[in-house]
């Protein structure tokens, strides 16, 4: 089995304007690999929502995208405040984002639900005061 291809990005938590740069880069990389547009769209939307979340809530973090033979894995790890109630956070419309983020077009409580919507599996590990790691997979077959 060939080695998996890994793309790593540092997500800058200081600058909301530049949020999404990693997702833009991964979209370009996956296009170059010749993957189907629908797969690329699902991966990049899920990662974009995750990237925005990391900037809003966690002051940035690390994003890794691993291209396996049968799936694409997205791992987003931050050292933010952690998620207090995952069930609530997964509900569409629930958000803890501040008002200034809403005025920028986010914080509608759709981030995690959209990440689930566009991926085949999502696993969230979180610890209050320590951070959150989200693992998502989009199947290729």
């Amino acid at each position: 089995m060939p080695d998996a291809l890994v793309f790593h990005f540092d997500v800058d938590g200081e600058n909301f304007t530049s949020a999404g740069q990693a997702s833009t880069a991964i979209k370009r990389n996956l296009r170059q690999l010749g993957l189907p547009p629908e797969i690329i769209r699902r991966v990049s939307i899920a990662m974009y929502e995750g990237e925005i979340n990391m900037v809003i809530h966690a002051n940035g973090g690390d994003a890794d995208v691993i291209v396996h033979e049968d799936c694409i894995e997205i791992i987003l790890a931050d050292r933010g405040p952690g998620i207090k109630d995952i069930n609530l956070a997964m509900q569409e419309g629930y958000s803890t984002a501040p008002d200034n983020i809403r005025s920028l077009g986010f914080g509608a409580g759709m981030g995690l639900p959209n990440m689930k919507r566009y991926t085949d599996s999502i696993d969230i590990e979180t610890e209050l005061g320590v951070g959150t790691t989200i693992r998502m997979k989009v199947n290729l077959t």
Binding site: F16, T17, S18, A19, G20, S23, T24, K27, P37, R41, S44, I45, Y48, I52, L104, G105, F106
Partner: peptide, 15 residues
């Protein structure tokens, strides 16, 4: 009616 770079990125992600 929203004007910031995330509008462009959102449209880009959605093709």
């Amino acid at each position: 009616g929203l004007v910031n770079p995330q509008v462009i990125r959102t449209a880009e992600m959605m093709d």
